[in-house]
Amino acid sequence: MKAMPYLLVLPALVLFAAVVIVPLAMTVALSFHDWGQYKGIEPVFILKNWREVLEDSYYYEVFGRTFRIAALVTLLSAVFGAPEAYILNRMKSPWRGFFLLVILGPLLISVVARTLGWALLFGGNSGLVNKALMSAGLISAPIPFMFTETGMVVALAHVLMPYMVLSVWAALQRLDPQIENAAVALGAGPLTVLRRIVLPQAMPGILAGAVIVFSLAASAFATPAIIGGRRLKVASTLAYDEFLNTLNWPLGATVAVILLVVLATLVIVANRLVERRYAQVFG
């Protein structure tokens, strides 16, 4: 009987050991191998790739861009997604279900198709987004979106927005529907209710959403590749190039391992902090 649960997890465990743990270990090992234009990959243990990535300012620039974009995308999605989740939560059915479908549905549409849409909307200086912004009087001259960080941020914010809405919405679902009334009855105005009652309770959802959005934005590939083109690189497109164009796999593996380690550390630390902060309050 004691062996029962282990027997049950065994098939999945074997699969994961063989197809996840072994390949990841091989990738880490790969980052320490040597590579030359003509000799290919040499299975030796050297720190050449790590030294190259950690010493060359080019890589700092790429990683800096990657995390800058991820931070901006996270900020945008929190600032715009959280209010939308709140509005959704206050809607009545069937509208709530319908708009939830409209907002979360894009999550399930191929990211290539969605990014293509942004490429079309950005489309040079005469793109629709620029026309709309200019006619609304928000800008006076067209902003370049294609092949810029701005464009990547906007497109990624769109691609990842549903995760933030979903996360905040889930937190708001746990809110006692009477709680806003309770605050109002005690004399709180609408803004006070939002700031003192709703926001603190939505915060765990916003933070959880931020962790998801940040890590997905920092490791996003298709969107930066399409919007950024061949020259404006982020970590994932850089690794892709090393693997499939330059064929310097050890260097690409080093970039990938760094990305993995940084993101895993961030996610674990962030989750710990959120848990510690809220364990007492929300259990």
Partner: peptide, 28 residues
């Protein structure tokens, strides 16, 4: 409603989960 000054005890209690007991009571 915010100006009626009525005391209400809700069926679910509707306590503010992110505030301590004292903060809950002090809110009004």
């Amino acid at each position: 409603p915010a100006k009626r000054g009525l005391g209400i005890v809700f069926q679910s209690y509707a306590l503010f989960p992110h505030m301590s007991v004292a903060e809950n009571v002090a809110f009004g």
